[in-house]
């Protein structure tokens, strides 16, 4: 049985390669139950590959391979396990049940040829031995929780009949339907407009409080980090360059790249009394 003092997820020295290219290099971090961990970094820094590796989707979806390291999952009332070593049939039971994921692009993340109901019911029934009617009831309940208006009608619609924000809500409903221990949100608001972004972040936060799930929020937006994160992991060029509590990272960043990231956040009035925009302080490649 798991020890409640242990972190819920512990990633140790994880390395992921695509052929000879190292996409994730010796990455280590921890995630505690109920907390929100933000993984930040520029495009190509290895954030998404790290997230996909946690569910071992990197092997199936992008032909990458985990060459070394551990992904220790320590779910309450269950035996701890190393996801990096788990066979595919056991991993399938963890995906969607203990760890769920929502993706950046809600427009393409749902299958266009199946109705919302069919996709939600399938997600539930692939892990729970319940009738279709009960699964529809659960799906409807989740649609209400993610605040989709007129959920009975929306449930019968196809993805192309819903707006981007609504589709991301459906993705969240699908991901949280089985009360997973960990929700991985891979830039869930990047493809949405600003007002919808705030709604989706608020919704994830509310549902997290209701369910007690831990969240790994992958983003390049420090504004999002400040809004939702408890702790932050900063990645650059496949490596973790800094990590710590959110206050520490914002108040006293140590690494030049973290400083540059924070400096990149636009501030209201920062252009006052200046004729032209100032050159952005770039970080050296080998920093």
């Amino acid at each position: 049985m798991s020890d409640s003092a242990l972190p819920l997820l512990e990633v140790n020295n994880l390395t992921v390669k695509f052929g000879d290219f190292t996409a994730v290099d010796d990455v280590s971090f921890q995630l505690n139950a109920g907390e929100t961990l933000a993984i930040v970094g520029e495009s190509g820094s290895g954030k998404t590959v790290t997230a996909l590796s946690l569910m071992r989707l990197v092997e199936l979806s992008s032909r990458g391979r985990i060459t070394s390291g551990e992904i220790l999952l320590n779910p309450p009332n269950e035996i701890p396990m190393d996801l990096a070593d788990l066979p595919e049939d056991k991993l399938r039971k963890i995906r969607g049940e203990l760890i769920s994921m929502i993706f950046q692009e809600p427009l393409t993340a749902l299958n266009p040829v199946f109705s919302v109901q069919s996709q939600l019911v399938e997600a539930i029934r692939s892990h729970r031995d319940i009738s279709k009617a009960s699964a529809i009831e659960m799906a409807l309940d989740m649609m209400r929780k993610v605040r989709i208006p007129d959920p009975e009608q929306r449930l019968k619609r196809f993805p192309h009949e819903l707006s981007g924000g609504m589709r991301q809500r459906v993705m969240i409903a699908q991901a949280l339907a089985l009360n997973p221990q960990i929700l991985i949100a891979d830039e869930p608001t990047t493809a949405l407009d600003v007002t919808i972004q705030a709604q989706i972040l608020g919704l994830i936060k509310d549902l997290q409080e209701q369910t007690g799930s831990a969240v790994i929020m992958i983003t390049h937006d420090m504004g999002v980090v400040a809004q939702v994160a408890d702790r932050v992991v900063v990645m650059r060029q496949s490596k973790v360059v800094e990590q710590g509590p959110v206050e520490q990272i914002f108040d006293d960043p140590q690494h030049p790249y973290t400083k540059a990231l924070l400096a990149a956040v636009p501030r209201l009035g920062s252009m006052a009394d200046k004729d032209a925009p100032e050159k952005f302080p770039l970080v050296e490649q080998d920093a």
Binding site: L52, R95, F103, L110, V113, S126
Partner: peptide, 26 residues
């Protein structure tokens, strides 16, 4: 390589269902 196939796998569906239901119909 599409996003919805990745979603289907992330849901924990069997590979047979991912291929012959989600991918094939498209």
């Amino acid at each position: 390589g599409s996003d919805y196939v990745r979603t289907a796998r992330a849901k924990g569906l069997k590979e047979r269902v991912v291929i012959w239901k989600h991918a094939l119909r498209n």
